[in-house]
Design a protein around this nucleic acid. Structure first.
Lengths: 124, 124
DNA sequence: GTTTAAAAGCGACTATGTCGCATTACTAGG
DNA sequence: CCTAGTAATGCGACATAGTCGCTTTTAAAC
């Protein structure tokens, strides 16, 4: 199962990179120049997540957002930082702050999904 | 717009209270003895949230979970604690830990949605 | 150029959650 | 106790997000 380079992959990644933020499937579809099937966009995004290129965040609107893994390598745990979703401009950005939590013994954490919702600097 | 006491409200609240955990609409519908319409359950749950009886959490499965506001009053901010979702037994529980975050100036946080996903004590 | 398997397109499907509207049933006031 | 007003419920329809199976296309190795 070796990955191939396709125009679709490049287009999706370029849109996300340019935006500098986490994006949902519909936002990506809206920004992209070529016409790509909805299911395909999801598959591309999920593949990028598997490959550690993107990470997925679930926001309070129950939608999946995909963001570039900027400095999210193995040592730097699994995307354990906060995210901020602005209710005005609808954008979701990664915050630099790491999430610190303590958890009762016996629990094993595999994923962290932390989203703060409110109004961002630009919109307030 | 004054609230009324109905068998539906009581049944929903009693199921959540008994479970001791956050529950989704379908879990509630499954546990409840009487037959209640799906839309009604959502309305009851959302009303409880408005009244500060329950709070809503979005988990990584993109579903809404509703938990009792145990000690979540005005002073104790807005449900700013962690939640833990077990991938084995599928339950979602509130953790006692408060969420501590710092945020760039100019940002205004209105809601906090923090869910840790993994395997709980019982299931590991 | 051939081959082969990954990727894309398409359609169908599931699930979650919401909304409008007609009907039911709490509850307050007499 | 009865009645009126309105909150709450049931029902159906709808919107949206995301997934899946199958066929076709296409990247890339030989």
């Amino acid at each position: 199962m070796k990955r191939r380079n396709t125009p679709t992959k490049e287009a999706v990644l370029s849109v996300i990179t340019k935006s500098g933020q986490a994006m949902s499937q519909d936002a990506i579809e809206g920004e992209i120049s070529i016409d790509i099937n909805r299911a395909t966009i999801y598959r591309v995004l999920n593949r990028f997540c598997e490959d550690g290129v993107l990470h997925k965040v679930i926001a309070e609107d129950s939608k999946q957002y995909f963001a570039l893994c900027d400095g999210c390598d193995e040592t730097h745990q699994k995307h354990q930082h906060f995210h901020f979703k602005c209710t005005v401009c609808e954008t979701l950005e990664c915050l630099p702050n790491e999430v610190n939590y303590s958890i009762p013994s016996g629990y094993h954490v595999e994923h962290v999904n932390c989203v703060l919702t409110g109004v961002c600097k630009k919109c307030s």
